[in-house]
Structure formats: structure tokens, C-alpha cells
Amino acid sequence: MPYWQYFSHLPVVTSNTCIIKSLSVLKFSYMYLNFLQGIDPSALLKTHIQGVINHGKGDTSFFIDINEYAHDANLVMNILLKSINSTRNRNGRLPENLFIQADNCARETKNRIVLGFCELLVKLKVFHEVNLSFLYVGHTHEDIDAAFSVIAEKLRKTDAETLAQIQQLLNGGRLVQGFFDIKASKANIVSAIPKGEPSFLLPPNFKNINISGLKTSIDRSQFQFTDKTSYRWWIKFITEIEQMANSAEKVEKYAKRQAFWLLPYLVNKTTRYVDEEEELNPALAG
């Protein structure tokens, strides 16, 4: 019996099952453009999608980044926090138990850092119990792979010329922003929940983007876009990336976008630990 069918027999009010997996999406031909030919692959914008299926509520979420953040334990922990908070906002409470199904990627999920993070969620009474499980090597095809197949088929038939168009194809995919370096600060947050402004905001890194090559390719292909709006979007996007690559102040401003330190708002919010609701406020000034 597949694991999601097994866990579906558990009471929804006391347990929740989610699966998290990443898709290093083909190199986006300035997103997905089927008309591109003869373009230098190194000049394409590499884009990454992290998928989360919440089996307790039957919904799928996608998180998009342009490789400005490392794909490691920090990526998984930050996205898990965002997903858990979305469940809390939707239901008002969290279930007592959390079951996480992940692949066998040691860089992202199968490591002591993520395991320690799961322990932290129990220690701080975010959940009464957290189960982190992995499928056997060679047998890691789950239902989220079917969701990724649907994405690939959509992009094969439909051009996505900008990030906004990719989000639409993903039915509201979220841009990954406001990351915290939980990995480096785990020792501190185990003993006490930080209050006020966290000191471990994770700065983005745009050095992996071939800005000059991307600009050249966009200019060569400008008349192949559906309209001038997409081309103007790319010019603005490239200009912003260039500015951030040379300005620590702009990098810091980018890092603070949607930077909410969610952990304090998740403590004692399960059906087991009843507490008053709190209004979510930004942990950082934008």
C-alpha cells in the first residue's frame, strides 16, 4: 500500500502527511520558450522548483527560485516552515503529528541537520510527533513526480516567457524569498526562540547567473517574444540582477523580501497545545 494511502486512514485533525521533493528544471530558455534555437546553454537562466504535496488537505504547492540560494538543508527547512504556516493559516490550528516523505538526497533532506530540525519542532511543541521517512533507493517515484510530469507537459506545449507566466502555469507557484540560515543558527534556536529581528538572514548569491550571456541572448531573441511586454520584463530583470550583484545594500534589501521568521507563530498551535492566536508580523523591516 502506498504511504499516502496508509496515512490517509489517520484522523485528519491529529495528523498531517506531506511530501517534499525538488525538480532542477531544465535550464529555462528564459523561462520555457520553445522557439529558441542555437542559444548558448550557459546563457540560459537556470530555474529550480521545489514541490510540496500536503496529503492532509490534498493540495500541492510549488516554490520557484533562480538558484540564488543553495539547494541544501536550508532550502528544505525554510520551505517546510512556509508550508506548515500555510496549513496553520488555512485551518487555524496544526495537527498533532507531522509525517514527512522525502527523497534520498543527502544534500537537501537526508542529513542530520534536517533530522535535528524535526526534533526542534517537537521540542518547541510545534508538533507532538514528527516522522521523517525515505523510500528505498531505486524506488523513489512518488505522486509528486506525477505533478512534475504535468508541469513538463504544460511547458512543452505552452511558452512561459517570464517568471509570472511560470507561476500561472504552476497554479500560483510561489517565488522563494525571505530565507533564513537555519543551518548555521540551529544551535541557537534549539535553546531559545529568537525574538525581534533574527540575526541569521540568508543572503542570495547571483554569481551563478551568466548576466552578460543572458543579456546577449535576450537581445538576439527580442522579436520572437509574444509581445514587447515580455522583452521589457527581461530588460528590467537583468538590470536589477546586475545592480544587486554589485551592491551589498540591494542584496540585503532583496534578502528581506517576505522575510518572516515563522517559528514563534507555530509554537503551541496544534490541537494538543491550545493557545491564543497571534497576528503575523514581519520579523524584518523591508
Rank of each mutant, 00 (worst) to 15 (best):
S133P: 03
H71L: 03
Q50D: 15
M31C: 11
L163Q: 08
L214Y: 04
T216N: 10
M1R: 03
W261G: 02
F223L: 11
N16Y: 00
D227L: 02
Y273D: 12
P204W: 03
K123I: 09
A106M: 11
I144L: 13
F63H: 03
I39F: 10
D40M: 10
Q50T: 15
L44C: 09
N74P: 15
G173V: 04
A184C: 07
K110D: 07
N16A: 05
Q37F: 13
A70C: 09
L94S: 01
G178I: 09
V130A: 02
T109K: 00
H48T: 12
L80T: 05
N67C: 13
Q168V: 10
Q5G: 05
F237A: 06
I209W: 04
F127K: 02
L280Y: 11
A285M: 15
T216K: 12
Y273Q: 04
Q5L: 13
Y32K: 10
I144F: 03
T239Q: 13
E161R: 08
V150F: 05
E242I: 09
V130N: 02
E277M: 06
K157T: 10
Q243A: 15
P204Y: 06
A187D: 08
K21A: 12
V114Y: 01
G138F: 07
S230L: 02
L163H: 07
E68R: 00
K253V: 14
A102P: 03
N67T: 07
V122D: 06
D65K: 00
A146I: 08
L98S: 00
P11A: 05
N131T: 14
L115T: 07
E278Q: 15
C118T: 06
V130Q: 02
K256M: 06
T158Q: 11
D181F: 09
V13H: 05
K253T: 15
H9D: 10
W234V: 00
N91C: 12
C18P: 02
T47I: 14
L155M: 11
T239S: 14
K57R: 09
V267S: 03
L45C: 08
N205G: 07
Y32L: 13
T47S: 06
N89M: 11
S133I: 12
R88G: 00
Q258E: 15
P194T: 11
A70S: 11
R272N: 06
W4Q: 05
L163P: 02
M244D: 04
K195T: 15
K183M: 04
F223I: 07
S86Y: 07
L115S: 07
L201W: 00
C105R: 01
E142Q: 12
K123N: 09
P41Y: 03
R174V: 13
K110S: 03
V251A: 01
I144C: 03
D275I: 04
S61P: 12
L284P: 00
N281Q: 14
S24G: 14
K250I: 12
N34Q: 12
R257H: 14
K228G: 13
K269M: 11
P264M: 14
K269Y: 07
V190Y: 14
E119T: 10
F200K: 00
Y231S: 00
S185V: 06
I53E: 05
N111H: 11
L201F: 00
T162P: 08
K207E: 13
